[in-house]
Design a protein around this nucleic acid. Structure first.
Lengths: 244, 244
DNA sequence: GACTAAAATATGTCTAGACATATTATCCAG
DNA sequence: CTGGATAATATGTCTAGACATATTTTAGTC
């Protein structure tokens, strides 16, 4: 059993769909037909077809059968790597510096209000560099009620993202991506002209309903491209299951 | 059987993980223990735990057991809706106009070269409006070898994205998001000042290895925010399975 | 014809096993 | 003490059924 049968079945069905041989709307063979074709139990073909359904390649309807789904670009996988890893993956030298750190009384207005934090917060501003040049300015607010140990962490040595990842569990996150012209302060920090087009990535992170941290990274427009890849099939043509 | 048992098990395990009661690295109960606890067959608990693994909540290792995964913000779901739906969802009036249409000989340089198209292509430039104001300028190239019927389609009446979705199957897509300052031509089309920060979404779409279309949408910076939501668990607290 | 009840049927869920496979722990020999 | 063979064990895959559930088709009734 070099290759599990259910993966082989998934891959063969996925190939028919992706090649266009089975167009959207086409009813793929019933489970009992696949059972006969592959000479296996229904649970096996069911697992194969269910995987295609999970990948969005087919829609299943009781009594009616399973149908090739209409293609739709509705969701893409946006990979947001750790800044340091991102910079080093480009073969550039990574640099990090803490610009500002202060304790802040509770407040709930603005972007940060989405965290619904009640207690005091730690506010950090730091800068990441690639080959010495400013790569991104990060503004971060950490809810000390959710992460008390952050108050004594050494954020001059460790970037807040890396520290939080290692110390605090989270359950939900939301990202927002926007373009904006750099204001004078930001322009100074990023070493660009005021008004220069920048990409801003904002992220809120929660655990349960409790806000943990809000973060805003601003990149000079030409320094960073967010890349999102999407494949409707989770199955490569070689039968390997790709991660979604 | 109001709620399938395997979903109930998944939801209960997910709740323990998300609450922090089972921290990253914690070994969740063995399948035979869950089998005893829930009084069901191993296939049922296996399906439940496998779903958690697929959702990235746990890592499974033979002989060792299943362990709560380290949380990581590595991938987010970027939802990119149809422009018309997006505008209308905001309660604004949608407008569309075709600015330019021409047949182009094959060429393979630049962004478009990623399509690896051999034959002639159709090049379109169009503009989408929200409440009368420019919302985005779309530049699109369609590979006529992959979609011959595009040559006779009426893109003055139907936006190319909607037309392609209905007429051409695709298998892979890639998005790129960047910020840039508007050049004079773009600034005129978007009715903003030259240099104004804009958000640019570029998308390439393939079927198999064959490029179908390349698209570039540029939004005035303040008009559009891309939103990506991420939850490590595919299971809501109510046991419902959320889509990934 | 329109509406309703019943039969048919494909998928959804689940069981109680079996054997395969990867990995860890153990024990033994050198 | 170290390296390697061996045993133990948790997950991975699969079978051959069973019953549940949703939906469509069919048959029957008003």
């Amino acid at each position: 059993m070099r290759q599990p049968l259910h993966l082989r079945i998934s891959a063969e069905l996925a190939a028919k769909i992706r090649s266009g041989e089975w167009p959207p709307g086409y009813r793929i063979p019933f489970e009992h037909e696949l059972t006969a074709r592959y000479g296996c139990a229904r649970a096996t073909v069911s697992k194969a077809v269910e995987a295609l359904a999970a990948a969005g390649l087919v829609d299943r309807r009781r009594r009616a059968g399973s149908f090739v789904a209409q293609p739709h670009v509705e969701a893409a996988i946006l990979e947001i790597a750790d800044i340091q890893a991102e910079v080093e993956a480009r073969g550039q030298a990574y640099g990090y510096e803490l610009l500002s750190r202060r304790l802040r009384p509770p407040r709930a207005e603005g972007d940060e209000g989405r965290l619904k934090a009640q207690g005091p917060a730690l506010q950090l501003i730091c800068r990441h560099r690639a080959n010495g040049r400013p790569f991104t300015v990060e503004e971060r607010v950490i809810n000390l009620a959710a992460a008390p140990s952050a108050e004594t962490a050494d954020f001059a040595a460790t970037a807040p993202g890396a520290w939080l990842l290692a110390h605090v569990a989270w359950s939900e996150a939301e990202h927002r991506i926007a373009a904006l012209g750099a204001d004078p302060v930001l322009a100074g920090l990023l070493a660009v002209a005021p008004g220069h087009a920048c990409l801003r990535l904002t992220r809120w992170t929660w655990r349960g309903g409790e806000g943990i941290t809000a973060m805003r990274q601003t990149f000079p427009g030409e320094a960073y491209n967010l890349v999102a890849r999407f494949t409707p099939a989770a199955f490569g043509s070689d039968g390997t299951k790709t991660t979604i």
